[in-house]
């Protein structure tokens, strides 16, 4: 229930706050969001597998986001930013699908 409240609050903040993300960070925000989604799916899977640990969740969340952004940043510095963005998105997308499949099997046994 608190999680649902958090989602609602986040939507409200996103809709009513002025879009004032710093310009320098802007290319990395979408990657960070994808990484965060991956961390959330992993947390849901762990929760359903009864191996959820809040410490692991927070650490993996923060490190996922930071590492994804850092990879893209390094790629931008050496001129392969768009390719690395694609690579990170592909890897994270595969992980998200894997986690989603595991969650689906756990929930509806199919």
């Amino acid at each position: 229930m608190v999680v649902v409240l958090g989602v609602i609050l986040g939507v409200a903040i996103g809709l009513y706050a002025a879009p004032s993300l710093p310009a320098g960070l802007q290319p990395y925000i979408p990657i960070a969001v994808v990484a965060a989604l991956d961390a959330l799916f992993g947390a849901a899977r762990a929760f359903l597998a009864h191996t959820f640990s809040d410490k692991v969740f927070v650490v993996s969340f923060v490190s996922n986001v930071l590492i994804a952004a850092a990879i893209v940043w390094v790629g931008d510095q050496i001129g392969v930013g768009s390719q690395l963005t694609t690579a990170v998105v592909v890897v994270l997308g595969i992980r998200i699908f894997t986690n989603a499949a595991a969650i689906r099997r756990e929930l509806i046994h199919a």
């Binding site: 989602v7 986040g10 925000i29 969001v33 989604l37 961390a39 959330l40």
Partner: peptide, 12 residues
């Protein structure tokens, strides 16, 4: 965390 992610995603 979910609140932060949602807000960031919608903002971006």
């Amino acid at each position: 965390v979910v609140c932060l992610v949602t807000a960031t995603a919608i903002l971006s």
